[in-house]
Nucleic acid binder design. Structure first.
Length: 419
RNA sequence: GUGGCCGUAGCUCAAAGGUAGAGUCCGGGGUUGUGAUCCCCGUUGUUGUGGGUUCGAGUCCCAUCGGCCACCCCA
């Protein structure tokens, strides 16, 4: 019988790597709560229409990367969420979360995109998402960026750098878009297939094309910055000023555009050079239009998401794997009669808050001892050895080579706790 | 979705068309300080899968699945 394998691009995360994940998650969630963000949890499955409306029909995600199907029982079109912002805003509208004022929210969990797997890109991957709903000013944009900077510092990731841009309002973008399309069409012979296809669907995306010929055409194209009005420029200035005040370094990248249609004004990306082609560790920006796009009241908002696999990869790369928890005692037993006593002893010690591993299965005393040593436990407790008196337990320190001693079970708690 | 490289024991890797191996791990035993080191013995494979070429295929060819990398895209 051929064994069943995991679905392509969807990975098991195994010990000891899970220890690194849990440490990362604990640090991130502490950091979020410290910044005043509260946890929200949304379903993994949403109506397909949510993402079509929020992310945009002409985006790669909606065009070809969503896990979508028809639930025949209810005749509904459903989709495994490819990102979290749409769900979060949907929930905010559905439950009138901003009715009594703006909200700072965070969530975490798996996202699904049907892409070809490669390093740092998987079909099921994990994100932490952070959304600030109902805040209009550049201060909240800067807060998001600055809190990221703080997180990288706390995680010890010094090499992550910030790229920043503004993409203006939808009106400004529309005017720019028309001129950009005109320019691209004048040089259509030098565009690649992708750029041509996007001419009428998503021309802004050609700005960050890696194709050399396309780059030349883009270099001579008008710049979006020239189309920005006073309000947009002031917003961008506000963000930059606060970042400077907070000592956050950034590089303005005028070609930085986002792959999701809901963004406006501020957009940013945190990038590492140590991850190969998938270097973006965190990305986000402002999305003032999304609430109305999804049928809610006009509500300004900003947010960002980080790719957990990529960040954990950076942590692992830096050799930051935490030591596994060390048991206080490993209980061995010699003979069936001793198993019962060992079982009871282990239970009792655990009841006192001690970490106790009971040897399972048989094996020679030597192999049991090897297990005890491999477990990292501080002490081995042996029951049922011939030289021991009735009810006695032999206690052997595994670390510092001290002599082994004999005890009644009642004394062990104090010894193990005191040591 | 397109292209390049790669799939041999649980893990790390040998075997350049001619009997599938080593280290590690795991199990048993010996030395020992009932643990480490050291010594002896033992288990582990449809060589990813399916076809083909050949007297003979882990090795060559085709397909397929999976992995890695790049394009693409994004977190």
């Amino acid at each position: 019988m051929t064994p069943i394998r995991a679905v392509r691009g969807m990975n098991d995360i195994l010990p000891p790597e899970t220890a690194l994940w849990r440490e990362f998650e604990a640090k991130v969630e502490d950091w979020l709560e410290r910044h005043g963000y509260r946890n929200i949890r949304m379903p993994v499955v949403e109506p397909t229409q949510l993402f079509r409306r929020a992310i945009g029909e002409a985006t790669d995600i909606v065009e070809k990367e969503m896990y979508s199907w028809r639930d025949e029982l209810n005749d509904e079109q459903l989709t495994l969420r490819p990102e979290g912002t749409a769900s979060c805003v949907r929930a905010a509208i559905e439950h009138s979360l901003v009715y009594d004022g703006p909200k700072r929210l965070w969530y975490g969990g798996p996202m699904y995109r049907h892409e070809r797997p490669q390093k740092g890109r998987y079909r099921q991957f994990h994100q932490y998402g952070v959304e600030a709903l109902g805040f209009p000013g550049p201060d909240i944009d800067a807060e998001h960026i600055a809190m990221c900077a703080a997180l990288w510092r706390e995680l010890g990731l010094e090499e992550v750098r910030l790229e920043l841009n503004t993409i203006g309002s939808s009106e400004e973008r529309a005017r720019y878009r028309a001129d950009l399309v005109r320019h691209l069409q004048q040089h259509e012979d030098r565009l690649d297939a992708d750029a041509r296809r996007r001419l009428h669907t998503n021309p802004l995306r050609t700005l960050d094309s890696k194709n050399a010929g396309v780059q030349e055409v883009v270099a001579s194209a008008p710049s979006l910055m020239q189309y920005l009005g006073e309000a947009s420029l002031a917003h961008f200035d506000g963000v930059k000023r606060l970042l400077a005040a907070a000592g956050v370094e950034y590089r303005v990248n005028p070609r930085l555009v986002r792959g999701l249609d809901y963004y406006n004004l501020t957009v940013f990306e945190w990038i590492s050079d140590r991850l190969g082609a998938q270097g973006t560790v965190c990305g986000g920006g402002r999305y003032d239009g999304l609430f109305t796009q999804l049928g809610g009241k006009p509500t300004p908002a900003t947010g960002f998401a980080m790719g957990n696999e990529r960040i954990v990869a950076l942590l692992a790369d830096a050799g930051r794997t935490p030591a596994p928890p060390v048991p206080d005692a490993y209980v061995l037993w010699h003979g069936e009669a001793a198993l019962e006593a060992a079982f009871r002893l282990a239970q009792e010690l655990r009841g006192h808050g001690l970490r106790v591993v009971l040897h399972a299965g048989g094996g020679s005393l030597k192999s049991q001892m090897r297990r005890a040593d491999a477990s990292g436990a501080r002490f081995a407790l042996l029951l049922g050895e011939e030289e021991l008196g009735a009810g006695e337990v032999s206690l052997k320190p595994l670390r510092e080579g001290a002599a082994q001693t004999r005890h009644k079970p009642g004394h062990l708690v104090n010894i193990l706790k005191g040591a």
